[in-house]
Amino acid sequence: MSWPATYGARSCLPIARTTRTCTTCCLPSLEARTRFIEALKEQGVQAVFHYIPLHSSPAGRTFGRTGSEMTVTDDISERLVRMPLWIGVEEHLPTIFAAADKALAG
Rank of each mutant, 00 (worst) to 15 (best):
residue 90 E to N: 04
residue 102 K to A: 11
residue 5 A to G: 14
residue 25 C to S: 07
residue 46 Q to A: 14
residue 91 E to S: 13
residue 74 D to Q: 06
residue 24 T to L: 06
residue 90 E to G: 06
residue 12 C to T: 06
residue 58 P to Y: 00
residue 81 V to T: 01
residue 24 T to Q: 04
residue 43 Q to K: 11
residue 70 M to E: 12
residue 24 T to N: 04
residue 25 C to Q: 09
residue 71 T to Q: 08
residue 79 R to H: 07
residue 66 T to G: 02
residue 73 T to F: 00
residue 82 R to F: 11
residue 76 I to P: 00
residue 18 T to Q: 07
residue 5 A to C: 09
residue 65 R to H: 10
residue 20 R to Y: 10
residue 105 A to G: 14
residue 73 T to Q: 09
residue 64 G to T: 06
residue 3 W to S: 03
residue 48 V to W: 01
residue 5 A to Y: 11
residue 61 R to Y: 03
residue 74 D to L: 01
residue 36 F to Q: 04
residue 33 R to H: 08
residue 26 C to H: 00
residue 52 I to C: 08
residue 96 I to F: 07
residue 79 R to N: 05
residue 40 L to R: 01
residue 6 T to L: 15
residue 61 R to S: 04
residue 46 Q to D: 13
residue 73 T to S: 13
residue 12 C to G: 05
residue 81 V to L: 00
residue 71 T to K: 09
residue 36 F to E: 07
residue 90 E to R: 03
residue 53 P to I: 10
residue 26 C to R: 08
residue 17 R to C: 10
residue 38 E to S: 15
residue 42 E to R: 15
residue 76 I to V: 15
residue 2 S to L: 04
residue 82 R to A: 13
residue 15 I to P: 01
residue 43 Q to T: 02
residue 101 D to K: 12
residue 97 F to E: 15
residue 93 L to C: 08
residue 6 T to N: 07
residue 83 M to K: 05
residue 82 R to C: 12
residue 1 M to N: 09
residue 23 T to E: 04
residue 88 G to I: 02
residue 65 R to V: 06
residue 39 A to I: 10
residue 15 I to N: 09
residue 41 K to L: 11
residue 42 E to H: 08
residue 96 I to S: 00
residue 26 C to Q: 13
residue 11 S to H: 05
residue 97 F to A: 03
residue 96 I to N: 00
residue 5 A to W: 11
residue 68 S to G: 04
residue 100 A to T: 09
residue 23 T to I: 00
residue 87 I to G: 05
residue 101 D to P: 01
residue 54 L to K: 03
residue 97 F to W: 15
residue 69 E to L: 08
residue 15 I to Y: 09
residue 10 R to M: 12
residue 30 L to M: 09
residue 62 T to P: 00
residue 17 R to P: 09
residue 43 Q to W: 02
residue 99 A to D: 05
residue 64 G to H: 02
residue 25 C to T: 14
residue 96 I to H: 03
residue 24 T to H: 04
residue 87 I to E: 13
residue 38 E to L: 13
residue 91 E to D: 12
residue 37 I to E: 06
residue 10 R to A: 13
residue 6 T to V: 13
residue 54 L to T: 11
residue 8 G to L: 09
